[in-house]
């Protein structure tokens, strides 16, 4: 039962991660292209656009939360493990489970607050693009939801391991 859940969640989590990386690559490429366009227009044609700065800042928010979700999956967030590593094997396993569950609770709250933030901004419009601030601010909700999926998968996997040892 746990094994099957682990398997399904693992598949979903892997798939989402691949998609996330593609989207992230496109986001960073677009940020880069917009700023280069702005500099080029200014110096080659002595003119400027109103939207590149705004677009790149909105994309940076998406980069942060989507990239953070990928970093959760790939365990790249910076942490201090020196105390946990002193525990015996089973203690380490339990501690890993506790930290994952704590993170999950925190991220679920983050998703909820991110939802509030996005929904409350539906009627706020950006200066240059006249875009509803709902769209950039949706990034917390989306990035957070992906983190939830990865964390749930980790927890199921850890539970399986706790059982086995």
């Amino acid at each position: 039962m746990l094994a099957k859940l682990d398997h399904i969640l693992g598949k979903c989590s892997d798939l989402i991660n691949v998609v996330s990386k593609y989207v992230l690559g496109i986001i960073v490429a677009t940020m880069f292209a917009s700023i280069i366009l702005q500099v080029a227009l200014r110096y080659l044609f002595n003119t400027g656009l109103s939207w590149p700065e705004e677009l790149t800042t909105f994309l940076m928010a998406w980069m942060t939360f989507l990239g953070s979700a990928i970093a959760v999956k790939q365990m790249e967030h910076i942490s201090i493990n020196m105390f946990v590593e002193r525990l015996p094997q089973r203690g380490q396993l339990l501690m890993r489970l506790i930290t994952k569950i704590t993170m999950l609770l925190f991220v679920i709250l983050l998703v909820y607050l991110g939802y509030n933030l996005a929904v409350n901004s539906v009627n706020y419009f950006s200066n240059a693009l006249r875009l509803s601030l709902f769209w950039p601010r949706l990034s917390i909700l989306v990035g957070g939801s992906i983190m939830v999926l990865h964390l749930v998968h980790f927890i199921v996997r850890d539970l399986r391991e706790v059982r086995r040892t």
Partner: peptide, 11 residues
């Protein structure tokens, strides 16, 4: 670079 920056920016 997106992932590395995200880790820093999240802090």
């Amino acid at each position: 670079s997106g992932i590395t920056s995200a880790v820093i920016l999240l802090v």
